[in-house]
Amino acid sequence: MTAVPVAIGRRTTTPAPAPERGDGRLVDTHGRVHRDLRISLTDRCSLRCTYCMPEQGNEWLARTSILSTDEIEEVAQVAASLGIRTFRLTGGEPLLRADIVDVVRRISRIEGPDGPVEVAMTTNGITLAKKLPELIDAGLSRLNISIDTIDRQKFADLTRRDRLDDVLEGIAAAAASELRPLKLNAVAMRGVNDDELVDLVQFAMDVGAQLRFIEQMPLDSGHTWDRASMVTREEILESLGARWRLDPVPGRGGAPAEKWRIDGGPHEVGVIASVTAPFCGACDRLRLTADGQFRNCLFSNSEYDLGAVLRESAASSPAERAEAIAALLRSCVHGKLPGHAIDDPSFLQPARGMNAIGG
């Protein structure tokens, strides 16, 4: 079976077959070893953030196209055997998936060559307080919660939903749990929350969490991203530096966030500067969309159709299906470019929005 990438918005070619490696690890042509798979469970969300999707008129993925729990578990087992250590469940909003606890339980019991895998989740936190005990019992080990503002009116304007209290309740439940490190994600936006950067960091410190600011990326479904409205890494650091002493934390590795220790510690703040300070050279992440498309970069315009592989191998033995999935993963990794080239004049924004790709 030949793995063929599906072109999304730009011409692409079929990559050469990926070379077999003796240890079976997922290593691309630039020497990057891949250890992280982000699995989107749905493209639906309980919020309508202005930088992500319109309030109405969204075209959702057909429910029949969404990967089943059995399929997600099957793919995770193969990925783990190839060296994937961390599975991050995303969306849309992953807590909207009715079987979310079962998904966590099934993945968390998988073991790879280096032992048990880790299951993390990124959520908007709206129903987290209610579901968190079951998720922890099922094996959830890490949590990121998105919160761009702690101002009630701003939150309602930005998300088009008056749900700040629910998010704060979810954060409080997570802060009271044993899940550490607890991370809060905030997209920094000019004229929206750039006057709250210090307040957001202080809020995170007060609840025992680490705030991570994210540069706004060209991933909105309406393709209205404007670099001028993006608050840059340097601007974020300048704003925080006026309030605290920031000392760089060494040993970033493949992590997306640069970190700084605040006033000598113990608190830290992170910045994910995908646009102005890309970290592609150390990227170890792959993505799987809710409808079964592997992506080797958040900004890629090519996808590798897992659904077709699963359908074509439906009557095959479990071992043959596993090898077909592994072959697609290897091809996806082999086709990974050295970087996303947002600053290149030829850059084209992905056709899918962030909610459809998976955070």
Score class of each variant (00 low, 15 high):
157 D>M: 10
79 A>V: 12
269 V>D: 03
7 A>P: 15
340 H>Y: 07
196 E>Q: 10
181 P>W: 02
254 G>C: 05
345 P>V: 01
246 L>G: 06
253 G>S: 15
14 T>D: 13
285 R>V: 05
59 E>N: 03
6 V>K: 08
24 G>D: 01
320 E>I: 06
117 V>Q: 06
90 T>C: 01
338 P>C: 06
108 S>P: 05
16 A>D: 15
178 E>S: 12
359 G>M: 08
266 P>F: 02
119 V>F: 01
99 D>T: 10
89 L>W: 07
152 R>P: 00
21 R>H: 02
105 R>G: 14
104 V>Y: 10
112 G>C: 14
260 W>H: 08
235 E>K: 15
224 T>W: 13
229 S>W: 11
142 R>V: 04
46 S>W: 01
155 F>Y: 07
290 A>M: 04
36 D>I: 09
171 I>A: 09
255 A>D: 07
304 Y>R: 07
304 Y>F: 13
238 E>A: 04
16 A>Q: 12
153 Q>P: 00
58 N>R: 11
248 P>I: 00
333 V>W: 00
82 L>I: 00
93 E>W: 08
237 L>Y: 12
249 V>G: 00
33 V>L: 02
280 C>V: 13
159 T>M: 04
43 D>C: 12
341 A>K: 13
207 V>Q: 11
289 T>R: 03
28 D>R: 02
14 T>N: 11
168 L>Q: 10
262 I>F: 07
208 G>H: 12
203 F>G: 14
131 K>L: 14
164 L>D: 11
57 G>R: 01
302 S>G: 13
26 L>Q: 05
51 Y>Q: 08
258 E>V: 11
152 R>E: 02
109 R>A: 15
121 M>A: 12
212 R>F: 08
